[in-house]
Design a protein around this nucleic acid. Structure first.
Length: 280
DNA sequence: AAACAAACCTGTGCGC
DNA sequence: TGCGCACAGGTTTGTT
């Protein structure tokens, strides 16, 4: 579900609510959510600690603690983070509850129907062994910054389908299925082009498209699709779905050329949406 | 190295 | 109305 813009929206909401607050108690209701380690590890690692910041790398949320450890949360397909007043009714599939101290105590709820998401407390000095995929993550266009030159070099470094390359978190971190399809459409590039056959001019156009799409999606608070699964920590959805030009629009008229219909094909198990007229 | 398919789970929407 | 199937924002693993 959540891609970079959604995770960034959650990060901002979380930062405003939890930074500087002490964790008084932790409940783990579903072991699968803490499968990387154990309920004990998460409970002991968090209880009594104070969250000092909320950062994001790709789709990973990272909260440094005053203990020196770090809390990592990944929403995967269906995870949600909600900050609610203590004692609020908990939604179904609430798997982890983090109690936060304050004059008005709150609970941070990790809700996740499909249980792909995870919560782990790790030691950042051992990140390579405790969270290897984080250590190997590619450049985050927003958090790290990504220049056009840098991006063009990445495209030339391999010979792969451009869509697969954009979705590969080891190359560029944070782009998922929605923003990949939207960026390729805005740049006029088909999903099955070879990354190393993209011209410098096209690479510049794609770079600009990615930065624009991600930036605008963040401003819009992300995309909340028909199932309303994605919401920010306040329970409010985003509205970037209103600006989608190809994602989930198969069979509908292309909003750019207004002549062809958007086509959907399955690529490596992912729905891929594009305009056969605008993209080549 | 690159490209699929399958796996991990649950919920929803659609066609019949 | 009910059933069965396809499909879903992610990532890893195993197989060609």
């Amino acid at each position: 579900m959540p891609e970079l813009p959604e995770v960034e929206t959650v990060r901002r909401g979380l930062a405003a609510q939890v930074v500087g607050r002490r964790i008084t108690r932790v409940e783990v209701g579903r072991e699968r959510t803490v499968r990387r380690t154990s309920p004990r590890s998460v409970i002991d690692g968090l209880t009594g600690a104070t969250i000092t910041a909320v950062n994001r790398r790709g789709k990973y949320l990272l909260c440094p603690l005053d203990t020196g450890d770090e809390l990592m949360m990944h929403l995967r397909m269906s995870g949600r983070l909600l900050v609610v007043p203590t004692g609020s009714e908990r939604p179904p599939h609430t798997h982890v509850v983090i109690h936060l101290a304050g004059q008005e105590p709150h609970e941070l709820l990790f809700v996740d129907p499909r249980t792909f998401g995870e919560v782990v407390v790790f030691d950042p000095s051992n990140v390579a062994t405790e969270l290897p995929e984080l250590a190997k993550m590619g450049v985050d266009p927003i958090a790290d910054g990504l220049s056009g030159k840098q991006f063009a070099a990445l495209l030339q470094s391999r010979s792969r389908q451009i869509k697969a390359m954009l979705l590969d978190q080891h190359v560029v971190a944070g782009i998922g299925n929605i923003y990949c399809d939207e960026s390729l459409h805005l740049a006029g590039i088909r999903w099955d082009r070879r990354s190393d056959a993209v011209t410098p001019r096209e690479a510049a156009k794609l770079h600009a498209a990615i930065m624009r799409v991600l930036g605008e999606a963040i401003e819009a608070g992300g995309s909340t699709l028909a199932d309303s699964q994605y919401v920010g920590v306040d329970g409010e959805g985003g509205w970037f779905q209103l600006h989608h030009r190809v994602y989930d629009r198969a069979g509908q008229r292309c909003l750019t050329c207004r002549k062809a219909d958007i086509v959907r094909v399955a690529v490596a198990g992912r729905g891929t949406h594009f305009c056969p007229r605008c993209q080549s």
